[in-house]
């Protein structure tokens, strides 16, 4: 993979402004302002229930918001329909539970989007898919069904499936939380490579080592609010708020 140098502030890929979201009476996103520049890796951390997943899911509108604006590559999110589908194709998403299509082979999981959404011809889609599977180290598993793979392999397949759409941005929602410990690193390694190749990424994770090594910026959320936003160095050595201090104390204990 080649390193692409992106000058800071070159291009804003995601911009959330004054975003509010409720689930019934529960205010899950409170006045969120966040922007992510091209090539940036933003790690979102925070206690359970703080709204990290919801934040991720609003960016490709899997969850609609109640007020505020979200722009991806300078365009506001379209309403439900064909345009929204096209926008989602530009935003890769990797889930905690992999969510591979269980009835399709790994290869077909990866080529489905390119063929049906991008209208890529089958031969090209297949070639690209095999290259991507090679890149994430599971080319030999291409013809297997998801259930025949280990969790780590499934998650790498899910990353390949998202990359096959040539996304402008990748969202990761706790991609290693469902994995056995021995498989966490194989997934984090793929993500690290991806970050080094210049991909713009928003990553919700509890892997503090990954955050320290790979993040350009750490965003700390609590109770639906962004409490802190800093470089990993600053955040981990000098957290400002009590909540961040508490959280770090708890998570760094083990």
């Amino acid at each position: 993979m080649t390193q692409t140098d992106v000058p800071a502030g070159a291009e804003t890929v995601v911009a959330l402004r004054d975003v509010q979201k409720w689930f019934g009476d529960l205010h899950v996103l409170k006045d969120i302002n966040l922007s992510v520049e091209r090539g940036e890796v933003v790690v979102v951390i925070g206690p359970s229930g703080s709204g990290k997943s919801t934040l991720c899911r609003t960016i490709n509108r899997l969850e609609p918001i109640d007020s505020g604006t979200i722009e991806v590559a300078g365009e506001p999110l379209p309403a439900e329909g064909k345009d929204l589908a096209m926008l989602r194709a530009e935003v890769g998403m990797v889930f905690q539970s992999f969510n591979l299509f269980a009835h399709k082979t790994i290869l077909d999981n990866v080529t489905l989007g390119p063929i049906k959404v991008r209208k890529t011809d089958k031969v090209t889609a297949r070639e690209e898919a095999l290259q991507l599977l090679d890149r994430v180290g599971i080319r030999s598993q291409a013809d297997k069904l998801p259930a025949e793979l280990s969790g780590g392999q499934q998650q790498r397949a899910a990353i390949a499936r998202a990359l096959a759409m040539h996304p402008k941005l990748m969202l990761f929602d706790e991609p290693t939380s469902a994995l056995d410990p021995e498989m966490i690193n194989e997934v984090l390694d793929v993500m690290t490579d991806l970050a080094q190749s210049g991909m713009t990424m928003i990553v919700v994770t509890h892997e503090m080592g990954f955050a320290r090594r790979v993040a350009d910026r750490v965003v700390f959320m609590s109770d639906g609010e962004i409490m802190e936003e800093a470089t990993p160095e600053e955040f981990f050595t000098n957290p400002v708020t009590d909540r961040a201090k508490d959280f770090l104390a708890k998570i760094l204990q083990h």
Partner: peptide, 26 residues
């Protein structure tokens, strides 16, 4: 699993495509 329909939407399949190619076959 609901997550598969979400994954289908997340790669840009429309509701009809996701129903036809992901949800209904299973």
């Amino acid at each position: 699993p609901l997550g598969q329909a979400e994954a289908a939407r997340a790669i840009g399949l429309t509701f009809m495509q996701s129903a036809r190619m992901v949800v209904l076959p299973q």
